[in-house]
Structures are given as C-alpha cells and as structure tokens.
Amino acid sequence: MPPIRVEIDGTAYEDDVEPRLLLVHYLRDRLGKVGTPIGCDTSNCGACTVLLDGLSAKSCAVLAVQADGRDVTTIEGLGVPGTGREHPMQRAFHEEHALQCGYCTPGMIMAAIDLLRENADPSADEIRQGLEGNLCRCTGYQNIVRAVRRASADMRQGAAQAQDAVQGRERGAAS
C-alpha cells in the first residue's frame, strides 16, 4: 500500500492507503472527518467539494494517493459556526437561510469560497455560473445566491479594514 502524507485542515497525516481509496472515503472513514458528505457516484452533485492546494475539487473524483504531498481544506477547517470564529461564508449561509436539509451545504460553501478567490464581487448570475457544479434539491438556490453576495460584501469589507489597520500601523511606525 502506497504511503501518503497529506496536510488536512492544518494537520499533517501520514498513512498507508489502498490505491483505490477515494479522497472522500479517506476523509470520512479513516480520519472521521464526516463534515464532507457524499451525494452521488458520478461526480455530478458537488456535495463532496474540498479545496485541493487552494482550488475546488470534488473529493469523490480524486484518489487519496493523488492527494499525497498536497494541502486539503474541508468544511471542518473553516471554523466552528456559532463561536464567532466561523468563516464569513458560513455565517452568511446561516443568516441568509441558505440551507434546508443541509446536505449540499459543505460543498456549496467550499465552491463559493473558490468562486470568491477568482472574483471577489460576483453578480448573481456569476454566482449561479460559479456554483453550477453543486446541486441543491431543497432551497431553489435563491438564498444561496443571496448568502454568497453577503459573504462577498463582508469579506471585501473585512479585507479593507485589515488593509487600513496595516497602513495605520505602517504610518505609526514611520512617524
């Protein structure tokens, strides 16, 4: 069995895995990281989406051996909702009621974060395009689009505040 070393949500794991083990099964069955669900057998639904070296990937379409030496972020690595240390996307999904059963939510949030990495201020249309690989059978998508718009505004504001703080510090240091 090939050995792998993967960094997942900030922790390094070393394991021997069967080549046929899918990344999503490794996450769920070996590591107990069940935050990432499986919704299909055809890589259509997007429920299992994670970030692989920062880019969205369907973890049911990746072998664990292919993740060797890579960096994986799952929904569990984002933060804990309700603690004030959640990701702005998690908060926006909660506050905009962007979920009902919640099955699609982890993948939807990871895909939405990937979308904002490419386009910090997407239109409603661009959000629908960007999330085309993630299916939701409950919400009708309206509130999901709203939540991503809100997270995008929050994150841009957060980034601007952070920049002001840095500039303030630099000015302070210079004077």
């Binding site: 880019l55 369907k58 379409a61 895909a111 690989g133």
Partner: peptide, 9 residues
C-alpha cells in the same frame, strides 16, 4: 466544459 471544480483537474 463541466463546472469549475472539474475544470481544475
């Protein structure tokens, strides 16, 4: 082709 996650790989 497909969707962003599939286009990444």
């Amino acid at each position: 082709v497909a969707d962003p996650a599939i286009r990444h790989r």
